[in-house]
Amino acid sequence: MRVLVVDDHPVVCDGVRALVSVTDDIEVVGSARSAREAVGLAGELRPDLVLLDLRLPDMLGSEALPRIAAVAPDAKVVIFTAYDDHAALSAALRGGAHGCLLKDVTDIDLVAQLRRVAAGARVVDPRLRESGGTPLRARLFRLSLSRREYDVVRLAAIGRTNPEIAEELGLTRNTVKTYLQTAMHKLGARNRVEAVRRAQEEQLL
């Protein structure tokens, strides 16, 4: 499976490339940082699958989708996003996206889901909803908190230790630590206690 990754954050492109490098059936053949660049590369490389960020500097993924389909009609497009309640998500799914995954998907899950898409399945992360929304999702979106960051803060708020959180969420301890640190940064907190207090003030808990 030849994959084109479209994301304006190089760390995401590099991360996906690293995750699939251990497989023998998936290869990242290119990466683009804008929708226009993605359209050019899709026409040139003719990938089997395009992992497309929902929010790009020049347009939304839902707007880029038909342009990519026009130059690479056989490519399957999967939306790859950190935002689970963006209005463009519904538009992208209605517009022919073959699936949508949240960026905090684990490496094993990512490879498995890409293989499912390649086999013809339409894959949508179960945490996503194609329509409607909840106050919680709206608050997470406003704070740029991913669902995983929220889950870590939520468990920390009820007294779970990092090892306990790791076990409950199926993550490594280092990953839990990283999620907690990024959540603290987004919440403007200096430590774990402040993060929980800020989450409560934002009505996340």
Rank of each mutant, 00 (worst) to 15 (best):
R129M: 02
S131D: 03
G30I: 05
Q200L: 10
M1P: 06
E168S: 10
L205G: 05
V50L: 03
D109L: 04
I26Y: 04
G43I: 03
E167V: 09
Q203I: 06
L205P: 02
R198S: 11
L51H: 12
Y83R: 15
T172N: 09
P126F: 05
T81D: 01
P126L: 12
L60C: 09
D48C: 07
L54I: 10
L180F: 05
L171C: 11
Y150E: 02
D125F: 01
G159Y: 01
L45K: 14
S31N: 08
L204R: 15
R122I: 08
D14Y: 03
L205C: 04
L56S: 13
T175S: 13
A82F: 03
S34G: 05
D24W: 00
D107T: 07
V12T: 14
G30P: 05
L45S: 13
E164V: 03
S21G: 09
V78S: 14
V123Y: 04
I108V: 12
L171N: 07
K177M: 04
M59V: 06
L187G: 13
A156Q: 07
A70C: 05
L93H: 10
S90P: 01
P163I: 08
P66L: 03
K103F: 01
A121R: 15
A119T: 06
R192I: 04
E149Q: 15
K76G: 05
R147P: 01
A118C: 04
L155H: 12
L204C: 07
P66E: 08
